[in-house]
């Protein structure tokens, strides 16, 4: 039984990370119909901004700040203006191809300009473990869990309790109506890109001490974020959290109790079942379909 809870706790920490990445992905998708196939690489990259800043002599906290700012500017602002905006009116597919190309570009960039070798990354907290009822929890994963939860809760409050947030939600749900209501739709869309830029940087800082900074890190993370977003529900922040946690826990449990070789298959099967029988996701709202 102890091992079951051990897996549950580890899965929760992993799931919280997936949730953090999925939330940003969902926001951007909702407001601009951008399926960002480079989202995983967006999480991989800020760690290298931070490492580069530290190599230039900045202390860790300052480097993190620089990393977040760079991420917001490059992965938020520039991504929107250079890649998304010119192509939005041509439908989803060209943009999908563009983000696939972007993911290759970022991966190769990190490799060519930094290193192909995995890099150690400083941790926010010392490596301490707690033993509770036979379960071991590292301080690191607790911090990850707490930080991810806090970020997502803050985002939820922003979206539901503030005027700005409600405007963003209105934009996401019905841009035309939002425009009639006098909301500056373009500005709201821009905000979601900036928020995503910040979220991926935070995710990067949280996971890199555990995952190590490496140019291929985005491959698994990006797919995990899609799965979490869809399973939980595309149009709800809460949904992404649920999806992320289900994914993290399920991965551990299926690897331990069913089949390690097929551990990757279980989330996919759940995804297919969810899409076929509850396409709006577990917590999502049904969207009106236009013909």
């Amino acid at each position: 039984m102890a091992s079951f809870f051990q897996l549950l706790v580890s899965g929760l920490a992993t799931g919280a990370i997936y949730a953090l990445i999925a939330v940003g992905f969902t926001l951007v998708w909702q407001t601009s119909q951008t399926i960002n196939f480079a989202q995983g690489e967006f999480v991989m990259l800020p760690a290298f901004f931070i490492l580069a800043a530290m190599n230039a002599g900045a202390p860790f906290w300052l480097a993190c700040l620089i990393g977040i700012v760079l991420s917001v500017v490059i992965l938020g602002l520039l991504f929107k203006f250079i890649i998304v905006d010119p192509m939005l009116k041509y439908g989803v597919l060209p943009l999908v191809i563009s983000t696939i190309a972007l993911s290759l570009f970022l991966k190769e960039g990190a490799k060519d300009f930094y290193s192909s070798q995995a890099q150690p990354f400083p941790s926010l907290v010392p490596a301490t473990d707690f033993h509770v009822f036979g379960i071991v929890v590292s301080l690191q994963s607790l911090v990850v869990l707490a930080a991810a939860t806090a970020t997502v809760v803050a985002l939820h409050v922003l979206l539901t309790k503030t005027r700005l947030g409600r405007s963003m939600q209105a934009t996401a749900q019905n841009p035309t109506l939002a425009r009639i209501l006098g909301i500056d739709v373009n500005r709201m869309v821009l905000y979601t890109f900036l928020i995503n830029g910040a979220l991926v940087a935070i995710a990067s800082i949280l996971i890199s001490p555990i995952y190590l900074a490496k140019f291929t890190n985005g491959e698994t993370l990006g797919i995990a974020a899609f799965l979490a977003a869809i399973i939980g529900g595309f149009n709800q922040v809460r949904g992404a959290i649920l999806g992320g946690v289900i994914l993290g826990v399920l991965d551990n449990l299926s690897a331990a109790y069913i089949s390690a070789q097929y551990r990757g298959a279980f989330p996919l099967i759940i995804l297919i079942v969810v899409i076929l029988f509850r396409p709006q996701g577990l917590l999502g709202r049904i969207e009106e379909r236009t013909v």
């Binding site: 091992s3 051990q6 992993t14 698994t220 991965d251 690897a255």
Partner: peptide, 13 residues
């Protein structure tokens, strides 16, 4: 898996 990040299930086993 190649690129696996969470080894808690493996260690439990």
């Amino acid at each position: 898996e190649s690129g696996q990040t969470d080894f808690s299930a493996d260690v439990v086993k």
